[in-house]
Amino acid sequence: MKADWCGFGAAEHGRQVEAALSEERESVGWQVVEEAKTDARRRWILALSQRRDERSLAVADYLEGGGGGEAAPVARARLQARARSSSDPMVTALALQQLCAPGACANVEASQWSRLEPANLQAWLALALDPASRARQTQAAYVLDRLAQEAKYARSYQRELHAVLSSLPQTQIPGLQNEAELQLMSALVFGWPLLSVGPLTDVCRSGLADTGTASRCQAVAQLLARQDNILHRAVGLGIARNLVAAQPAMRAAWEAQAQEFEAVSEWRGGAAERAASASEPEGAALACGGQAEVRQVLKDHLARSEWDRMRDGIDEAGVDEATLASRWRKREGRSVLDPRPAPQPASAPAKAG
């Protein structure tokens, strides 16, 4: 496997991983939890359906459409129909994640989201990635222009979905039903798909010789670098890195934001270690006892963004931002505004002897 990773090695690794997962899925423990999650999904769909408001009904269809089985295609068709006639951008955002198979129903157009919510960066990213639009060479440039002109914030509706789910009846007694709800909620909230910004970063890497493109890229970078999403800030500073490389005089305008990002990234890197040291697990006896802690994590996710939680952690610990940023730069060997080091060439495969 080591000598021929690109041939036999990777393929064998994938086979072994799939075999292990298949064995786990056939275990009684796996099946017990999956059945409990299916029951929790059904309870939530019923509760949402009884509310009758548009957003609750759309979330009910979204849950059913993602659950598999014979009911899923029908639920997806209902969700698409709701989205085509709805003025709620969240309904469109949900529908764009669960498109019908070709010919099964009429899917909502990706452009509907940006028509309903032109100030939302996420709506334009969805348009940039629309399979029906990507064939047009000017699509990414058009989206970049609209972002620079109209976008003011980024809202994916991940947290809004979490708010709807959190408002449903929840099991407070420790046990299997509680565990199933937590696993289902976590999968829905933390498994929310991220829209790629690749088409935009490509334009802002190759088109900076054009003054208009450079200006639009700067506006979009500033928008991204102000969001409460760490990934968005990273992308914004990535675009800024290209701008600084093309125009070194711009570096001073980005230094403060770069230092803050580096400090938060350094603090975030040690968050898991701090969390582990703060807890003292005592084996299986705490399996259900930890359910309340997981619910608190989900609650914190709803109340504050990851960026805000990291910033609050730095402030509460009284750690100096410049010190954290310095650690990050020392470890990475550069500032976030400096070019990434060129990748080292892969070592030659071992020869069979």
Rank of each mutant, 00 (worst) to 15 (best):
E12G: 05
R15C: 03
V17N: 07
E24F: 08
S27V: 05
W30Q: 11
W30E: 11
K37Q: 14
T38M: 10
D39E: 12
A40K: 07
I45V: 15
I45Q: 11
L46C: 08
S49A: 12
R55L: 15
S56L: 05
Y62M: 06
E64N: 07
G68D: 02
G68A: 08
G69H: 05
P73T: 12
R76W: 04
S85H: 11
S86K: 05
S87Q: 15
L99R: 14
A106I: 10
V108E: 11
Q112Y: 08
R115Q: 13
E117I: 05
N120H: 05
N120M: 07
N120S: 04
L121P: 03
A126F: 11
L127R: 10
L127C: 09
S133C: 06
R136Q: 10
R136T: 08
A140D: 02
R146H: 05
L147C: 10
Q149R: 09
L165G: 08
Q172T: 15
I173H: 12
G175R: 03
Q177T: 15
N178E: 09
A180E: 09
Q183I: 13
L184Q: 01
S186P: 04
F190K: 12
G198F: 09
V203I: 14
C204T: 08
R205S: 15
A209D: 11
G212K: 13
T213A: 01
S215V: 06
A221W: 00
A221L: 04
I230E: 02
L231G: 08
R241Y: 02
P248Q: 10
M250F: 09
A252R: 15
Q257P: 07
A258F: 02
E262I: 00
R268F: 03
A271D: 05
A271M: 09
E273G: 05
R274Y: 02
A275T: 06
S277N: 13
A278F: 06
A278M: 02
G290C: 07
Q291N: 02
Q291M: 00
R295F: 12
K299T: 15
D300G: 11
L302H: 09
A303R: 15
A303Q: 14
R304Y: 13
D308N: 12
D312K: 00
E316K: 14
A317P: 00
V319A: 02
R331S: 12
V336T: 06
L337F: 07
P341L: 12
P345L: 14
A348F: 11
